[in-house]
Design a protein around this nucleic acid. Sequence first.
DNA 1: ACGCGATGCGCC
DNA 2: AAAGGGCGCATCGCGT
Length: 631
Amino acid sequence: MTRISFDTETYQIQSGQPFPRLVCLTWVEDGGDPQGLSLKEGAVEMFESWLDAGHTLVSHNGAGFDLGVMVAAGVTHSKVWAALKEGRIKDTWIQSQMQAIARDELKFNPRLKKRPTFSLAELELDLLGVEREGKKGPDVWRLRYHELEGVPFHQYPQAAKDYALADAVGTDRVYLALDDEPADTGLKILSQYSLALTSARGMVCDLEAVETLEKSLRAEVTEAKEKLKAAGLLKKSGSKDMAAIYSRVRAAFEAQGKDAPQTAKQREAGSDKTKADTETLRESDDPMLGLLADISNSDKLLSTYVPLLKSGTAGPLHPRYYLAETGRTTCRNPNVQNQPRKGGVRECFVPRQGWWYLAADYHVAELASLAQVLLDLFGHSEMAEAVKRGEDLHILAAAQMLNLDYKEAYRRHKAGDKQLKDTRQLMKALNFGLPGGLGPQTFVTYANTSWGLDIDFDQAKSLKDAWLGWWPEMRLYFDEIGRRVELGGGRFTATQHRSGRQRGGLTYCNGCNTYFQGLTADGARLALASVTEECFVKTDSPLYGCRPVAFIHDEIMLECPADLTKARAAAKRLTEVMVRDMQVFTPDVPSKADAHLMERWYKGAEPTFDEDGGLVPWRPKDQEPFTAPAQ
DNA sequence: ACGCGATGCGCC
DNA sequence: AAAGGGCGCATCGCGT
């Protein structure tokens, strides 16, 4: 088996061109002398010959960049996918991070004594003890390779040659110095490539919608800010005067004969500071602090989200996806995984002209994964049984709570019974919150801030007891995690049940969480990869021609041609693939995924059908329902 | 000017 | 015995 470590040099990355034009390709074959070839000399053909020959290709962040560059330069896409699926594409960037996660060194590397960046130079230092040359050295060429367009590689200035070859050599050495390939590396690389394509496509925003949103938010905030300035809570510049806010909070609580709330760290430090979140501000009963709380939501939208929406009107946004410790992805620049559901932010995102959004998400993904984990560990799970019976876990819990049988509870819920609706909401809070190890006190806060529920400590305590009675295997689960923490002397390393991926440094709560959150992440990642492949290279797939634009943990969002026949077939295929791939990881617990179509990104969108039962784009209530164009 | 910790808040 | 977890980003204030 031939191992080829390679690197590419390109034009500079520009907005709208995440995979810039290739200038040259450098490589090391089986640890031999480094070589280079410019585009004109046949870099693309050379790369393709490696794929044809079945070689193993190693690169540093190739899944996120270089592969995309090579495909953009003309390498046959289906050959890249074949190599990815056969595990012939290696990536030192991903592998080193997975190794760090397994050792709990993602946030802090004890040898480097800092948070690692996983740059090639850093890995060479950490793994090989090799110090790269200083900034004045060869890397002055890093952003200038476009100047060498058309120049044969052997005629490059020595420094340009050296820099380009050094990365291929470094990658090869780092690859050899890394420990054995962590389990699950293949899927990580495959899905990271899918995410790179998702990022490259990017998302577009609608100028008119953004301007309307900004105007209405500004109108809401401006007047209040003037009042707050007059009250001395904001400085003239408009920024918050935290010292003034703290003392006002303190005074307001003293007037009520109470201590002002503080964070744990503030209390520990004996600080004069107080909490200043919206809850504290509201509880102060001070009208000015209340006003501050009232505008906090709009202020957040204006400062965090509006600027990025604006930049999305000038050209596509290209959010980048990275690895999270659980196996999930993180997303940034911008983070499309935390766009507000309320307030009209999502509605600013629009599919390109002639396209619709097609989105599908899993039904109670994490609870189904939890059920699988429980089955794996204990051989039996009430939760798994309920999912297998096709029951709604929240209604089932509500039925237990109200001493009804499931069918009766289901009937009442369907009939719009208020008691059932409220109880189900409470059960959702329990079902989503408690598996992570949530205690009664934190549940009180969680239920209030996340679900708007008003519960006191004693209620929370008895609810948790009841919940543990309904899912008796959860007691075993918590005990088991506690035992693993103890055995590890305070921290332990978890191994994912099917992917074998490892995560180190776990304590109790993140330990409870990581197994099922990671399992959902595994299934969703595999589904994203399969869907992406069908979109790009499976010409006979109903998804062919669609393009993934966002990946939100348990949801895949595509742009698909705005054509009912195509969109319906794509929607059907999308959910089929998602369910199929999740089954690889939760084989004993059935999964479900639902797809919907949208003309923009709507928060409340759900599957919508016409009279004939065919899927149509969802529309908000204040618009005419979608009708199919006449034949 | 920039980095960083603390805090708060957006989502799954 | 008790314990939500996973994130990114903006802001403020402090330190270099």
